[in-house]
Amino acid sequence: MHPEIALLNDFLLVGAALFGVGLIGFVSRRNMIVMFLSVEIMLQGVSLSLAAWGRFHNDFGGQALVLFIIAVAACEAAVALALILTLFHRRCSLDIAAWHFLREANQPPFRDAPLPEEPSERLEPWPHLPPAGARPEKFGEEDKYRPKV
């Protein structure tokens, strides 16, 4: 097989994989920001495909198109984040399922399945500095720190 065709094939497959994974994220995740990230992943897959096709056709058009995608993605990010913030201010939640006013009049609202109890994470306060010059009262208080961000 011609090496250029093999290269195109491989890059297109990777692009398709990125597109599909982003699609899964967009459809299944309910956090609006994560959904948005998923859309960006889909755009990455498309960009990759376009660049590969541009090389195959020995033309800068593909790359130019990817640049436009980046520009449009930037616009989209600005507007969408503004919208997300506004929506968040209304509901104090990033959950997309909180917004389904466009349903048919007699359809029941979306309800969460009851979530099982999360193994409780101890949310300890951030470490504070002991008074200067004094010995900390208890050593080994690291295990009280918040384990993750």
Binding site: L23, V27, S28, R29, N31, V34, A97, A113
Partner: peptide, 16 residues
């Protein structure tokens, strides 16, 4: 809570 629960994980994974 919305991050702990996907919407129709199986169907969307299959579709993607």
């Amino acid at each position: 809570s919305c991050d702990r629960m996907s919407w129709e994980a199986g169907v969307s994974a299959a579709a993607g």
